[in-house]
Simulated scan of single mutants.
Amino acid sequence: MDSFIRTEKQRDLIAKIDQLIPIFQKREPELDTPGSFPFENIKNLININYSKLTLPTEYGGQGLGLYEYILAQEAIAEGCGSTALSIGWTNGTILEYVESQHWNSDAANVLLGAIENGGLVNTAASENNAGSPTRGALPRTTVVRNGEELVITGEKIFTTAAPALTHFIITATNENNEVEMILVPSNLKGISLKDSWDSLAMRGTASQTVILDHVRVPNTYVLQTKTSQLKAAKGWLLHIPACYIGIAKAARNYALKFATSYIPSSLGNPIAEAPNIKQLIGEMELTLTTARHMLYGTVERYEQCKDKTAFKEPLDVTKIEVTNAAMKVVDRAMRIVGARALSESNPMHRYYLNVRAGLYNPPMSDVIQTKLANEVIAEFMEK
């Protein structure tokens, strides 16, 4: 039994996902194809009500919190990392609103109602040659008011799960040079997708380009104006390291299965009994277990924190350290499996590629390291 599962409700949730893990793993080679997306996996998760995990009960959701969300994301990623990352944005986006209530109520009710009816949402913020929005880049996508409507024009890249989304949250610059977050249904006239996602890692997320050509939505669809100083709690972003530690767990399981069943004639016993392999297994286990303690310890502290908007540093540090640990676990698993791990028919090569995508999900290591360095330097200079 997983020691991080604390309640019967959590146990039931993970039991449902555990039944899907072997199905997802069997389908995962299909996601090596450019332009692929795990539609069937997403459908399976919707069928167990997973897309409504964090949706409030008054909207027909499960009304669960961060701990259950992170447990589930890790388990889904053990079956398929692309699936976990793709569907995770919907539950995380809704959880942020539940905790912060930072959206305008009219637009929020439209989105919550859409999720109740089977919708999926993600924020489209990144743009070509505009820099990362997490580093303060101003969107080139524009929004102009025209009577009772908003007219949005621009392009958004790296939009995870784009082909399956029913709604986008578009960041755009308005006439006053303010950044607005606008709810945009994906079926509107003027919206098209360009399959620009040619990444070797997490290929199945279909993180495509969204093109908006004078797309019109009601002016009540503004969720938030960023200059309004509305703060939002970001604990849900821990679904990113949860996803990568789930991939690492899959790699660890494969390596253990291999090590305990492969008996070379020169050894006469499973290679798991060889001292060097046992050392690698021990290192892999220690790294994985330590990372999970850090991840779920941070979740528990976050849930107990009164001002969640002030809990940024632990979230940032946990993302970086857990993601780095996930890469280390996969590396050790690769060494245990040996040259076979590089075979295209072997799932290890996919774990190796996919886990490295975590380096490029926010927050970035260099940003956090620079911030920590500046803070500690300033602290010592004051002394």
Rank of each mutant, 00 (worst) to 15 (best):
R301E: 13
G204Y: 09
E375H: 01
K249S: 14
I94V: 05
K16H: 04
L71I: 07
K319E: 04
A357P: 01
E155Q: 02
S105M: 08
I157V: 14
E28W: 00
A107E: 10
E283I: 12
L150K: 09
L372G: 00
E375S: 11
N146S: 09
A274H: 15
T290H: 14
N219M: 12
V217H: 13
K194Q: 14
G65M: 06
K383M: 11
I48G: 02
N346K: 06
S343G: 13
S228L: 10
R292D: 05
T209C: 14
E148M: 07
I48A: 06
S192V: 05
S365H: 09
G131Q: 11
A333M: 02
P314N: 00
L150G: 02
M334F: 06
Q10N: 06
E127G: 13
K226A: 02
T225S: 05
V329A: 06
Y352N: 07
I5A: 05
L31W: 09
P264Q: 14
M202T: 15
N49Q: 03
A310F: 07
A72V: 03
N122L: 08
T134Q: 00
E175Q: 07
S345R: 00
E273F: 12
D195L: 10
N146H: 02
K319F: 00
P218A: 15
K9E: 15
L64E: 00
I368C: 08
S345H: 04
S100I: 13
A130N: 15
T370W: 00
V322I: 02
V337R: 09
E321H: 08
P270H: 03
S228I: 07
L13S: 04
Q224F: 05
Q304W: 01
T90R: 10
I115R: 04
V330I: 11
A137M: 05
E116V: 01
T54Q: 07
I157W: 04
L238S: 12
A341P: 08
S51A: 15
P275M: 12
V143H: 00
W236R: 09
Y67F: 15
R135A: 15
E28D: 15
I169R: 04
S365D: 01
D32N: 09
P163I: 10
I247S: 00
P185S: 02
K312N: 11
T153Y: 06
A242L: 12
N109D: 10
M327Y: 00
M1V: 09
P363K: 01
Y69S: 08
K319P: 03
V184F: 05
P29S: 01
E344M: 06
T93E: 10
I42P: 01
A373R: 12
Y351T: 09
L280S: 04
